[in-house]
Amino acid sequence: MTADPHANRISPLAGFAGVSDARLDVREIPFLRQTNVRADPARLLPAWADRLPLAPGTWRRSGETDILYLGPDEWLAIGDLTPVPAEPRADTARRVGQDDVILTDVSAQRTIARVAGPGARDLLAHGCALDLHPSVFGPGRCAQTMLARAQVILMARERDEFWILVRASFARYLAAWIADAAVDY
């Protein structure tokens, strides 16, 4: 047992050198807490209704947490999800009433690759069939889709900055794909 409880954890892209040049910057953002949120949007407590983006394909910042719309009853929170009063904690399985907001810890399920720079949109377009034009997929938008042959959650952050959430087992494949596609930028 070690003093640092995190000393021997390894992120899925620990071996990924990243990409760094004038047009493109790609690197992993490891170990962010992620929580899957399931709830019936029609029966949300006000405290939750204020935090969850209800418009499809959007994400919203709530305190230190970014909450992404995944589906009509599903969201993903990135960052520490401070519990709403009278709601269960993210990492417990206790049940509070019948209209639970169900929280599932999925921190290790996906890692995050940050792709930024003026070449970011063109790079992603090589593997993503979505229209990434800033007027269509600008900051505040997110989508579950395919990038190359991996399922991803794509998040448009600041101008020319995207986060790609990719499942841990696919992360190396996707990183290799990005590195290969980046040679043109």
Binding site: I10, P12, H126, A148, R149, A150, S169, Y173, A176, W177
Partner: peptide
Amino acid sequence: GRDRGALHDPVRVTA
């Protein structure tokens, strides 16, 4: 296109 060689199909690996 790019889907050949090592990138032909995703290779999923464990931790």
